[in-house]
Design a binder for these strands. Structure first.
Length: 386
DNA sequence: CGATCCCGCCACATC
DNA sequence: GATGTGGCGGGATCG
């Protein structure tokens, strides 16, 4: 079915030097988010997501699993997830923390005997007590000490699942005082003290995956230990002071904007070769991205948090959008604070990527951000529902 | 060279 | 026994 292909042996001329960055889980997750973070989305089909994002199904599972662990999604049925939205996060975190407390999460580790924690899932909080079908009753007197109690080979799977690991990783932040944790530490803690180097490596690999998507959700951020030491991750959110029954509000991720540099579809380059869109489609649909942040975005959430809206228009805080602006560590001084002022930052700071692609991307970013900002600025001067 | 982490084989779960 | 899920780790890339 070829036509104007002639010979295509040329495989190096066009070699768009494969870039891993374009295929990262984090980016993919961002795209996933900008694709489904809408008020009218209630059901997400894995196949649909995979094809629309232009990736293999396998990758969707990765994203979906960790997103589900933090309450953004919920599995409905095979091949189908429901969109809970970011509003679901606070709740999920609460449950997670509570759960951690109950099972003496940290102590189990810091104590003396390192051990793993096995548990159920949070979900809406209604877990059938009757009993699990498993014959082995895994209810230790106080908590789980020592190994994860096999339970059954079936559970063994869940034991190492990305989802569970995600939750434990999060619990680590929720409980510990130190809000800077390196993946090695996390792996060491969530794993046994003594463990095969191999096991460690695998665990860390997984943590990288998790960290990437959590980053794109803006739950955590990558930094370095004070004074550019070892890389570590910081929890981007006040510790939930379980004072009353309410949850802390969310201060981010609102608008249902898309605004990502390129098209939604992840550029598909094979690891080694070049796959020039064999697709029969023109695929110049990239311009279709209407960064219409559209009307309300506070209407949909309908969550029980109220302080959420103000941050919307002011956008003073930090975070916005599902995208993580690559890496813009220092802004002016050594202040390792959060990114404080994206607006000015966008117009002032110029990353200077030596990579043309990234440069373009950044430009897009800036423009997208600007137009978006302007748009809402005049669209809703002060309107805050109230 | 060590840190990062994408890719996709293939085992296990479900339909 | 086909299809959905998703561990797992080799090895390519990044910094």
């Amino acid at each position: 079915m070829s036509s104007s292909f002639s010979t295509l042996p040329e495989s190096e001329a066009r070699h768009h030097t494969y870039s891993r960055k374009q295929k990262s889980l984090g980016l993919l997750c961002s795209n996933f988010l900008s694709l489904y973070n809408r008020d009218d989305v209630e059901s997400i089909g894995l196949d649909d997501a995979a094809s629309r994002l232009g990736v293999e199904r396998r990758r969707i599972y990765d994203i979906v699993n960790v997103l589900e662990s933090v309450g953004v999604l919920a599995k409905m049925a095979k091949n189908r997830y429901s969109w809970k939205g970011f509003g679901g996060i606070p709740r999920a975190l609460e449950v997670l923390k509570e759960e951690a407390m109950r099972e003496n999460f940290l102590n189990t580790f810091e104590g003396c005997n390192y051990a793993k924690v096995s548990d159920e899932q949070e979900d809406d909080g209604i877990s059938p007590d009757p009993n699990i079908g498993t014959r082995q009753d895994k209810s230790s007197p106080s908590s789980v000490l020592l190994k994860p109690l096999p339970s059954s080979k079936a559970d063994s799977r869940r034991e190492k699942s990305l989802g569970l690991l995600t939750q434990n990783f999060v619990k680590l932040f929720l409980c510990s005082n130190a809000d800077l944790i390196s993946l090695d530490e996390a792996a060491r803690i969530l794993l046994g003290d003594g463990d095969n180097l191999s096991t460690m490596r695998t665990k860390v690999r997984r943590l990288y995956d998790i960290a990437n998507v959590l980053s794109s959700i803006n739950l955590i951020e990558k930094t370095h230990h004070t004074e550019s030491r070892k890389p570590a991750f910081r929890w981007l959110r006040m510790k939930e002071k379980s004072k009353n029954g309410s949850s802390i509000a969310f201060n981010q991720h609102e608008s249902g904007k898309r605004a990502f540099g390129t098209e939604i579809t992840n550029t598909s380059f094979k690891r080694n070769k070049v796959v020039s869109s064999i697709d029969g489609k023109p695929e110049d649909t990239k311009m279709k991205m209407q960064m219409q942040m559209k009307h309300e975005d506070c209407t949909n959430e309908t969550d029980s948090n109220q302080l959420e809206q103000h941050s919307k228009t002011s956008s003073k805080g930090f975070v916005f959008g599902p995208f993580t602006p690559v890496s813009v560590s220092k802004v002016g001084d050594s202040g390792n604070k959060r990114v404080q002022d994206w607006e000015s930052l966008a117009t002032t700071y110029r990353p200077q990527y030596q990579n043309q692609a990234l440069n373009d991307l950044f430009t897009h970013y800036t423009e997208a951000w600007k137009s978006w900002y302007v748009e809402i600025a005049e669209k809703k001067p002060v309107q805050q529902t109230s």
